[in-house]
Write a protein that binds this DNA or RNA. Structure first.
Length: 459
RNA sequence: GGCCCGUUCGUCUAGUGGUUAGGACCCAGGGUUUUCAUCUCUGUAACAGGAGUUCGAUUCUCCUACGGGCUACCA
């Protein structure tokens, strides 16, 4: 049985890199009919942020990355909060002390450490029989020159253990460190594949040592390449958004975000680029994961998001756009809104952009930008506006042919180019020089509203 | 500094000894649209460097350079 896990530390929001790690774990498990587990690694009480775990779980679920086991769900190997598993870590810690793989140290007020050589004494202290002693427990790293570790992607990785100091497994507050809790839990939760970020590769020897001393079977280890800023440093907030919720707020579709990050470090054996989560599950494979870090290129995300918007049917697009609609937009008039969305879905890279493009059909273009107003107020523009308005007044049914003919007439009559017709008209009708063609604008606005808007700017 | 990992167009990548080194994003140009965008066509652009191994290296080995990660009672 393939079992993977995502084990975030509840110190903030779900990071885009974390989302990718979760995604890989999830699709790998699902591809193999396995299970995906969520565990909260809250062993650092100082960095804990209230509500962060819930927030992360919510984000994950909203992306349809659903876990089979985790907090409040099929707690078969629970609890799934490490802070609730302290007694378990203590038990395994005792095992390590008993087999001399670890030793207890007293900590004095000056942070000085003094080892306790007596095993029974150490055990009784850990078992709370001596509550006065402040202590930590350290793992004794053997001095092995060539210690082999294995990563499914990179193969054998050799470390010189004489360069690694004994490391703490139980802190003085009684909580385990990541290294220790992680190994104990992955074993107890029967994790078969540990898929995590590359920043953990250097602690792999510590983990393997722990597995050995605890007499646990080793899982597979897969260290994912890092996500990078454009300057190739580790992806961080300083150079753009990393919080997944920020992407959603900006109008990126979850499916597009998932698709995009899936391809950052993984690639199928062909040139296909569009994958929904089911496609990812079907096609994913570990050997095709990249070994080098990948730069998060927002431009490609924009393109991918626009592809997703284009391919959506109107109803779905309407549905997901709802929360982006400004209050001016009349969602009851579905004909008008439908026309507007239909036009702009071909040319928006985010939902926010789509909404911005639609807004001019609903809000008065009463304070036109300087450049637009200047154009509109020119004598030639005013003449065209007047003529166009007059023409619209005698029209009963406005269609695309009529629209084209009208433009040709004006071009001839005033001896002007298309641009000189479009700019003033689009300016007063849509509020900017560039945008949809005149027919589309008038068709969406309606004849009456169009006439009203033109009239407003005629002097 | 030490240890570890990595290195194909600007970016994401295909490629597992013999390819005109392919695709996508970006960018540039053409066409369509009497504007812009969409759409479409075309183009620019890469094997970090040096030694080996081999008839032949992007591909295998080593060295160097560069980049990144780790080096906490943080994960």
């Amino acid at each position: 049985m393939i079992r993977t896990r995502f084990a975030p530390s509840p110190t903030g929001y779900l990071h885009i890199g974390g989302l990718r790690t979760a995604l890989y774990n999830f699709i790998f498990a699902k591809k193999n009919n396995g299970q995906f587990i969520l565990r909260i690694e809250d062993t650092d009480q100082k960095r804990l942020v209230r509500g962060a775990a819930e927030k992360i779980i919510k984000s994950l679920n909203s992306f349809d990355i659903n876990f089979d086991e985790g907090p409040n769900l099929n707690e078969k190997y629970g609890p799934y909060y490490q802070s609730k598993r302290l007694y378990i870590y203590h038990k395994y810690c005792c095992k390590l002390i008993e087999n001399k793989s670890a030793y207890l140290c007293y900590v004095d007020d000056n942070q000085n450490l003094k080892p306790e050589n007596n095993i029974d004494k150490s055990l009784s202290i850990i078992n709370q029989q001596d509550t006065k002693s402040r202590f930590i427990v350290k793992f004794k790293v053997p001095s092995i020159k060539n210690f082999n570790t294995f990563d499914d992607l990179r193969g054998k990785v050799v470390f010189d253990l004489s360069l690694i100091d004994d490391f703490i497994i139980i802190k003085s507050d009684g909580f385990p460190t990541y290294h220790f809790a992680n190994v104990v839990d992955d074993h107890l939760m029967k994790i078969s594949h540990v898929i995590r970020g590359e920043e953990w590769l250097s602690s792999l020897p510590k983990h393997m040592l722990l597995y050995n001393s605890l007499e646990f079977n080793l899982p597979h280890f897969i260290h994912l390449p890092l996500l990078l800023n454009p300057d190739h440093s580790k992806l961080s907030k300083r150079q753009g958004d990393v919080d997944v919720d920020k992407f959603i707020e900006k109008g990126y579709l979850k499916s597009a975000v998932l698709n995009f990050i899936a391809l950052l470090g993984w690639h199928p054996d062909n040139d296909r680029e569009i994958f929904n989560i089911l496609d990812l599950i079907e096609n994913f494979s570990i050997p095709r994961i990249q070994k080098s870090g990948s730069v998060f290129d927002i431009k490609k995300l924009n393109w991918m998001n626009s592809e997703y918007i284009k391919s959506m049917d109107l109803d779905t697009l309407f549905e997901v756009s709802q929360e982006f609609f400004k209050k001016e937009i009349d969602i009851k008039n579905t004909t008008k809104l439908g026309k507007a969305i239909n036009f702009f879905k071909q040319r928006s890279s985010t939902l926010l952009e789509l909404n911005d493009s639609i807004l001019p059909f609903y809000s008065e273009p009463n304070n036109l930008k300087e450049e637009v107003l200047t154009y509109v107020n020119e004598k030639k523009s005013q003449d065209i506006l007047k003529f166009y308005l007059k023409s619209l007044s005698i029209i009963e049914c406005f269609d695309i042919e009529l629209s084209d003919r009208l433009i040709k007439d004006i071009a001839e009559k005033f001896n002007v180019k298309g641009k000189e017709i479009f700019f003033p008209l689009r300016g007063v009708l849509y509020g900017s020089l560039n945008g949809p063609d005149l027919f589309t604008i008038i068709d969406i606005l309606g004849l009456d509203e169009s006439k009203r808007r033109i009239e407003q700017y005629i002097k």
